[in-house]
Simulated assay, not measured.
Amino acid sequence: MRFGDALKALELGKSLQRTGWNGKGLFVYLVPAASYQAQTGAAREHFGEGAMVPYNAYFAIKNANETVSTWVPSVNDCLADDWGVVGCAVPPHQQCVLDEKQDTDIRITKLDEFIERNPAFLDLPVSERSRMKRQLDVMQELSTILAERIAAF
């Protein structure tokens, strides 16, 4: 999968790796924003002894030597198409179907929310509202077909 899809998987809590990485057992994951008790002198000095320090979300990498570090993707990582979910034994052609189903379902949710909840929808011409509803129907049919394909794996 490409990096854009890999980001979506990271946001869903998946651990990922590239087939092009040389290190054994390397994988990356997203550490969500949280607060941790101050661990360093600088943090204790700034936030107070025993204080909870707020951290932003960040990427982490499990290294070959069983340590964890923060991770920033390289340009090569961002442009690579060899990303995969750790422990996922799905062949690449099936992973494409899984990715397409996920993307389609996200688009369905967004379009459905616009049609059902956004007042701007009612300001559109009737012909455009009709086309958008037809589009939603077709997208839902695509999602059903993809689900059937996935069930047949």
Rank of each mutant, 00 (worst) to 15 (best):
M1P: 10
F3K: 03
D5E: 12
A6M: 10
A6F: 08
A9C: 13
A9K: 10
G13Y: 06
K14E: 12
K14H: 10
Q17H: 15
W21T: 07
N22V: 11
G23F: 07
G25D: 11
F27A: 09
F27V: 05
V28W: 08
Y29R: 08
L30C: 06
V31R: 10
V31E: 12
P32D: 12
A33I: 06
Q37P: 12
Q37I: 10
A38G: 04
A38W: 04
A42W: 04
A43S: 02
A43Y: 00
A43Q: 02
R44K: 07
H46Y: 09
H46E: 03
H46M: 08
F47G: 01
G48W: 01
A51E: 02
V53A: 03
P54V: 01
P54T: 03
P54H: 01
Y55F: 04
Y55A: 01
N56V: 07
N56F: 07
A57M: 03
Y58S: 03
F59N: 03
A60D: 01
A60T: 00
A60H: 01
K62E: 00
A64G: 02
E66S: 06
E66N: 06
T67Y: 06
W71C: 00
W71K: 00
V72K: 00
S74G: 03
C78Q: 09
L79E: 05
L79C: 06
D82Y: 03
W83L: 05
W83T: 03
G84N: 09
G84M: 13
V85P: 11
V85S: 04
V86F: 11
G87I: 05
A89G: 14
V90Y: 11
V90K: 14
V90Q: 15
P91F: 02
P91T: 10
H93V: 14
Q94S: 14
Q94R: 09
C96V: 15
C96Y: 10
L98E: 13
L98A: 15
D99V: 14
D99K: 14
Q102Y: 15
D103S: 15
D103R: 15
T104Q: 15
T104F: 13
I106H: 15
R107Q: 15
T109L: 13
T109N: 12
D112V: 06
D112L: 12
E113K: 14
E113F: 09
F114T: 10
F114V: 10
I115L: 14
I115D: 05
E116C: 09
R117K: 09
P119S: 13
P119M: 11
A120M: 07
A120G: 08
F121M: 10
L122C: 04
L122H: 08
D123M: 07
L124E: 03
P125Q: 02
V126W: 07
S127A: 11
E128F: 04
E128S: 13
S130D: 11
M132L: 04
R134I: 09
R134W: 08
Q135Y: 04
Q135I: 05
L136G: 00
D137P: 00
D137N: 04
Q140V: 05
E141V: 13
E141R: 07
E141K: 06
E141W: 13
L142T: 06
L142R: 03
L142M: 02
S143H: 08
I145T: 07
E148Y: 05
I150F: 05
A151F: 12
A151L: 12
A152I: 04
F153C: 13
